[in-house]
Design a protein around this nucleic acid. Structure first.
Lengths: 195, 195
DNA sequence: CAGCTGACAGATATTGAAATCTGTCAGCTG
DNA sequence: CAGCTGACAGATTTCAATATCTGTCAGCTG
């Protein structure tokens, strides 16, 4: 990466770190590599991120937030709650499957980062179940869903569909028949949700 | 382990292999260790198992079969299908949680073995979903469940409850609140199953 | 002669010395 | 003087030599 003379910002460091991770993988990506990519000394990187772990955590958070953001539009709409729920899970599954299938090495890299940063992952899951809670609450309000505790139900929906969004199942996402399994699970939980 | 003068059988080798795995862990357990534990030369072990991988596969299969066997009793009963389903999942979750919690090191060992032997795992899952299919079919026959394709529904039930039996979630099984999450998911899918 | 042994070749794992990396900080530079 | 540099100590990783293991098989033993 060509050293530019722009100010060194956290954003530029994150960009460079993603590139270094893409190139070298999680095991060999070093802070020195990131500094070299930016044309600065590694001491400068430590001015913006206290440790290598903090830098990797920030990269992980950015990656997860991109998924959350793309789903929030579906959750926030005012369409039929059941259709929104179906679309939301389909969008989540499709997004994850493409991330895993299109660039397996990069996905493997992010799986390592996710393993290192469980606090960030927990926040991400709280964010996603929050979106689900919105949909469930809306459905209950309109009388099309039944739920004594929307947040608990939202979490149950998220857990029940884990096979189609949890990275630990990524290898199954290319298997034939996975679509059928997805439809069967979504159908089952939607039936369980209807008023 | 004291060398006995009994005949060397596959069963005795499997027993010794489990012990060696328990003691040394999956990375350091060698065929030579197993032979030493039995007081024979390692060549003798190769008379009963073609390769080290075949030996580890047999150990893995035995371990998984113990779980299947303990559940088949619940599946085969003639009690209320909904109660049987609830009990079956509870028994599966409880068994897995104890295996993981009571001896974490041994459980980690078996997680490595499971990763090495996906064919055995696939057979195990087919076995468990087969038991679920029995219960679903029985429920449909009695008019308490609805399912167009019991085998597909059984698989959906298994997938939807993955968080409470798939080893990749083992670290969550000690978390407070996991019982509540389990109940929420089981309730949700049972509601979806009722006629 | 059925079952076991132990030496062997090639593959894999261990080890420890050398190289690299992380995180700090005194001092340089624009 | 705010931001960057680069040398440094301790921690971690790499690499190549060494040791151990896997799988085979000719021959031993009861």
């Amino acid at each position: 990466m060509a050293p530019t003379s722009e100010t060194l910002t956290a954003a530029r460091i994150l960009e460079a770190t993603e590139e270094v991770l893409r190139r070298h993988g999680p095991a060999k990506a070093t802070v020195v590599d990131v500094a070299r990519a930016l044309g600065v000394s590694h001491g400068s990187v430590y001015r913006h991120f206290r440790t290598k772990a903090a830098l990797r955590e920030a990269v992980t958070e950015r990656w997860l937030d991109r998924t959350s953001a793309s789903l929030s539009g579906i959750a926030a709409g005012d369409r039929d709650p059941e259709a929104r729920l179906r679309d939301w899970f389909t969008a989540l599954f499709t997004a994850k499957r493409h991330k895993a299938g299109d660039d397996p090495e990069l996905f493997a890299t992010y799986m390592v980062l996710i393993g290192e940063n469980s606090a960030v992952v927990d926040r991400h899951i709280a964010d996603l179940t929050g979106q689900l809670t919105e949909i469930v609450q809306d459905g209950v309000g309109r009388g099309v869903f039944t739920s004594a505790a929307p947040a608990t139900t939202a979490r149950a929906l998220f857990d029940a569909t884990g096979r189609f969004h949890d990275p630990c199942y990524a290898r199954d996402w290319e298997q034939p028949g996975i679509e059928t399994e997805f439809d069967a699970v979504v159908e089952l939980v939607l039936r369980g949700l209807r008023a």
